[in-house]
């Protein structure tokens, strides 16, 4: 374990968010089983008061967890490589955590994704004075809790596992993935060229489904948004694969350097931040579009606001996709124009 200030900040933020979330979850549990909005009995009145406080507490928990996650990513990408011998980027830092770091990040992204959905629903909920989505939101919050516990505990274990006396080998992780060039040119058994085709096909489908979802009116909107959400969730992993395996070469100007974390270094102008941000937007707004379209149909009082939110989600997906395409394709095109060949 290293007592780095950033890591201490992460652990403190995580514990704070966990405590707040547990406090909110206690109320959420009662709401999930006892909520009776048509009753004016004292139990329901007390629960309504507690629901408001619980929602506020959850927002604070989200803020603390989000900030802690941001700090952790900054630490992994740009601060800890200087401290861990042999680490040149986040790959080396994660190697120092014996695999727990990657798992912790996965759980964190999952928690942030679910809480994002909670936040969308809560923002709709508070637009109505009677808060009709309260019970639904309470269930979403209870779903977050186990993953949050996992995220916090795995992060803690990962942090404690870091040993600055034990050198790591970034290059071994990146280059030892493949024994020969043929293996380097495929991912999960699929050739990278085929991944490119999959990526472009999904991109075109995503754009078209986004436009259709934009124009559709409820209830047909639900189906269109559903397709868009599914395509978004398929598109993101394909985009990540082609980014790392194909397009990153135009940033690194080196072939077969399949490292996602080096994109976050100052040497490459921190281009990893906007690139992965666009992927995050697509993966978050895809389900948002579908869920809000469904809310618009299920709760007539939300038809306007939820439909609008669904449209905004679709628009964000479109913009993020276009931005991603621009950021990966332009360097490749410039390279081609400059040197007359693609990197392969």
């Amino acid at each position: 374990m290293i007592w780095h200030p950033l890591l201490i900040a992460v652990l403190v933020g995580d514990l704070l968010s966990l405590l707040l979330l547990l406090a909110a979850a206690k109320t959420a549990f009662k709401i999930a089983i006892e909520w009776a909005p048509h009753s004016a009995a004292s139990r329901q009145i007390r629960l309504e008061r507690a629901a408001e406080t619980g929602a506020l507490t959850t927002r604070f928990a989200l803020a603390a967890f989000f900030v802690a996650s941001l700090v952790l990513i900054v630490a992994i990408t740009n601060v800890l490589p200087a401290v861990i011998p042999g680490a040149m980027c986040g790959t080396g830092v994660l190697q120092a955590t014996d695999g727990l770091g990657g798992r912790a990040l996965f759980y964190r992204f999952l928690v942030l994704g679910i809480i994002y959905i909670w936040l969308i629903l809560e923002k709709l909920n508070i637009l109505r004075p009677d808060r009709p989505l309260t019970q639904r939101n309470a269930r979403v919050l209870l779903l977050v809790l186990p993953f949050h516990l996992l995220a916090v505990s795995t992060t803690m274990q990962a942090v404690f596992r870091i040993d600055t006396h034990q050198p790591v080998d970034c290059c071994a992780v990146v280059y030892d993935q493949f024994r020969n060039l043929a293996v380097a040119q495929q991912t999960a058994g699929i050739p990278n060229t085929l991944w490119l085709w999959i990526f472009w096909t999904l991109t075109i489908l995503l754009v078209f489904s986004g436009l259709q979802a934009w124009r559709a009116k409820p209830p047909g909107r639900v189906k269109a948004a559903g397709w868009m959400a599914l395509l978004a969730l398929l598109w993101v992993p394909a985009a990540a694969v082609v980014l790392i395996k194909v397009f990153s070469a135009y940033y690194y100007q080196v072939l077969h350097h399949h490292c996602p974390w080096c994109l976050f270094l100052s040497d490459h102008k921190f281009v990893g931040i906007p690139l992965f941000f666009t992927l995050a937007v697509v993966v978050l707004e895809g389900p948002t579009s579908f869920i809000t379209a469904k809310i618009a149909v299920t709760y007539p009082q939300f038809v306007q606001t939820a439909t609008r939110r669904s449209q905004i989600a679709g628009l964000r997906i479109l913009l993020a996709t276009i931005a991603f395409i621009g950021m990966v394709a332009l360097p490749a095109i410039f390279w081609r124009l400059q040197f007359g060949v693609w990197i392969r």
Partner: peptide
């Protein structure tokens, strides 16, 4: 409208 049961912002 049950104003006493509304959330704080609406009340």
């Amino acid at each position: 409208r049950p104003v006493s049961r509304w959330n704080t912002a609406h009340r």
